[in-house]
């Protein structure tokens, strides 16, 4: 795990250098294009994290092993964080390029709703004491929230879309983007292990303090 931590520092550092020094400014957006490397990286991690939460939720409902519940919870925490980063970097970019901070646009709306759903997911986790019940309720909320996403996307697409679907990137930009996505993925892996460890330690402290195995 320590190795992964160093790898995360290394790749994120490289990604920073590439994004700010190596990649050129873009023809229309100028320096604002540099947001892209972090925006796309964190958006990718956010969706990866929620995907893993959904997968772990299914596994938990099916096999009822608490390990899966811990995976789901750890991944959801990271997902909420990176969704927030995605939204914030996107807003700065939008202010510069669209001249507005926000638009009710499919991807923006969907991402925001997703963020609210998983904030509620974390809230409800913290409200339930019983371990078994918390796992079940959280898994169901996570899955229902996930199923809602295509509907939100469809609904907001009917309102009209502005989000750039693809961009014409020069060679060096592609390199910077790929490295940054890789770096964010490594970072996700490291944070995921850290979050799992925090959960295990919490459980052990609780066990030492209260005894028994209910948590």
């Amino acid at each position: 795990m320590r190795g992964l931590g160093w790898l995360a520092y290394l790749t994120v550092g490289t990604a920073l250098l590439l994004a700010f020094l190596y990649a050129p400014p873009e023809a229309v957006m100028g320096e604002m294009v540099r947001f892209l490397y972090f925006h796309v990286g964190s958006a990718w991690v956010a969706f990866l994290a929620f995907g893993i939460t959904a997968l772990a939720s299914i596994l938990f409902l099916w096999q009822r092993r608490f390990l899966y519940d811990q995976w789901a919870a750890a991944s959801a925490e990271i997902g909420v964080l990176f969704t927030a980063i995605t939204l914030i970097t996107g807003m700065f970019w939008a202010r510069a390029v669209w001249n507005v901070w926000w638009r009710w646009e499919p991807r923006l709306t969907t991402t925001l709703i997703l963020w609210f759903i998983f904030v509620a997911y974390l809230l409800i986790r913290s409200a339930i004491e019983d371990r078994q019940r918390r796992g079940v309720v959280a898994a169901v909320v996570g899955l229902v929230g996930f199923a809602n996403v295509p509907l939100v996307y469809l609904a907001s697409r009917l309102w009209g879309g502005f989000h750039p679907a693809g961009a014409h990137l020069e060679g060096r930009m592609v390199v910077a983007l790929l490295v940054s996505v890789l770096a964010f993925t490594v970072l996700y892996g490291y944070l995921f292990l850290l979050a799992l460890r925090v959960r295990r330690l919490e459980e052990r402290t609780h066990h030492l303090y209260w005894g028994g195995d209910s948590f």
């Binding site: 509620a120 909320v141 509907l151 609904a155």
Partner: peptide
């Protein structure tokens, strides 16, 4: 907190 975000597409429509 649980209902409102899930309700978003329904509200729009």
């Amino acid at each position: 907190f649980l209902v409102l975000p899930l309700l978003a597409p329904l509200v729009m429509a």
